[in-house]
């Protein structure tokens, strides 16, 4: 009887230790991600394949017509689809569209009135792709 009770106590102590450890872990995780949240600049967020043209406009504060042009879309007809789908329809690798948006974003930052944040020359392959895709209507 005493053995069974002390075994129960042991399991309870183990569960208590585990739960307390988990609490501490979540506390540290919350502090870590809150710090990232506070310090992050949405405009420096990497352009991703899941982003839609409207999401890109919103995130990077870019003019919608220029985003459409960079993606080879008719002006004012941004599809409610991600870059991955748009690239697939155009028969292009999604990396091309991502590079085009990055070029547009970086260009906006370099101009007066842009965010002008230093180090805006992220993954170096932007300019030419942007011009090619923007001018080529993507077909």
């Amino acid at each position: 009887m005493i053995g069974a009770r002390s075994t129960g106590g042991l399991w309870l102590r183990i569960a208590l230790g585990f739960a307390a450890g988990l609490t501490l872990l979540f506390l540290l995780r919350a502090i870590f991600f809150a710090t990232i949240w506070m310090e992050s600049d949405p405009q420096r967020h990497a352009v991703e394949a899941w982003m839609t043209p409207r999401y890109i406009v919103r995130t990077y504060g870019l003019p919608p017509d220029r985003v459409d042009a960079a993606l080879g879309l008719p002006t004012g007809q941004s599809p409610r689809k991600p870059l991955a789908d748009i690239a697939e329809r155009q028969g292009l690798p999604v990396a091309h569209l991502i590079a085009a948006v990055e070029a547009l974003r970086d260009e906006g930052e370099r101009q007066p009135g842009g965010t002008g944040s230093p180090g805006a020359n992220a993954p170096g392959h932007s300019g030419p792709d942007s011009k090619r895709l923007g001018g080529g209507s993507g077909e």
Binding site: R29, A34, S40
Partner: peptide, 18 residues
């Protein structure tokens, strides 16, 4: 927080976990 959903989601998920 349209443009920060990943950061907000991770932070809030941790707070709820906590």
């Amino acid at each position: 927080f349209t443009t920060r959903i990943e950061e907000v989601s991770e932070t809030l998920g941790s707070v709820i976990g906590l």
